[in-house]
Computed example of a mutant assay.
Amino acid sequence: ITGPGVHLGYNKIHTYDAFNYRESDTVKPGNELVTFELDGVTVGVAICYDVRFPEQFKALARQGAEVIVVPTSWADGPEKRDQWRLLSATRALDSTAYVICAGQARPGGNAKAGEASGPTGIGHSVIVSPTAERLAEAGYEEEIVYADIDSELVTKTRKTLPVLEALS
């Protein structure tokens, strides 16, 4: 689905069927990758649990995605922030693209950090470069993060680290 600067929709491919929860009981997964153009930049889309599947990020990059956006409601709990930070950086390395993850703020903010939160967020929205540099990262509270995106860095990274050319 494409349009001139218009995102027309995406149905997450990987439903969250883990930790005794079955999202697939109520959500029908999609089966199509989505990219769109915004100001000359190709943007790929993933949602939440999709971040655990490197093949999807590589496929989006092979379709030209220079930036991949990932809105999430990542649950808090023991080691969940560490997993979130690792996965967001690793997907940037896998795809040699910028990965922008918008995480739902942690209900209760810093006072509840690290406690199990069920299906609600952990916060920590982040913008990661194609080389896994964290350009901006929020905390547990509501916050907006900003960073400059440089398409030339994507091109340079893909030339020096040609992981998208490898067999998948």
Rank of each mutant, 00 (worst) to 15 (best):
A111V: 11
Y140I: 02
V145D: 00
R85V: 12
G121Q: 04
R62S: 02
L87C: 10
A92I: 01
N110D: 15
I1N: 11
I68R: 03
Y49M: 13
E133F: 11
T2D: 14
G30E: 01
Y16P: 05
S151D: 04
A102M: 14
G139L: 00
G40I: 02
A138H: 06
N31M: 07
P29A: 05
F57D: 05
G64A: 01
T157S: 01
D82M: 13
H14W: 09
S95R: 07
S24I: 04
I100F: 14
L135E: 01
G139P: 06
S151H: 08
L87Y: 12
G44T: 02
E66K: 11
G118F: 00
D50G: 06
V126C: 11
H14S: 10
F57C: 03
V51M: 15
W84K: 09
V43D: 07
G114N: 04
A138Y: 00
S125Y: 03
L164G: 06
N31R: 11
I122G: 00
D50H: 04
T131Y: 14
K112I: 10
V6P: 00
R91D: 04
S73P: 08
T157E: 01
G3W: 02
Y21P: 03
D76V: 04
G114A: 05
A138I: 04
L8A: 10
V145R: 01
S125Q: 05
S168N: 15
I68C: 01
K80T: 11
C101F: 13
G109N: 04
A116Q: 11
V154G: 00
Q56H: 13
G103I: 01
Q56C: 05
S168G: 15
V27P: 02
A116W: 10
P4E: 03
A75S: 15
W74K: 06
L60D: 08
G114F: 07
P54Q: 06
T90E: 14
T42M: 13
A18W: 11
D148Y: 09
N31C: 09
G40P: 09
F36E: 07
L164F: 09
S125D: 03
W74S: 05
D39E: 14
V163F: 15
V145W: 02
T2Q: 15
A116D: 13
E66I: 07
Y16S: 06
V128N: 05
H14Y: 09
I127C: 06
V6H: 08
H7W: 13
D17F: 01
V51A: 11
T72P: 08
A105T: 08
T26W: 08
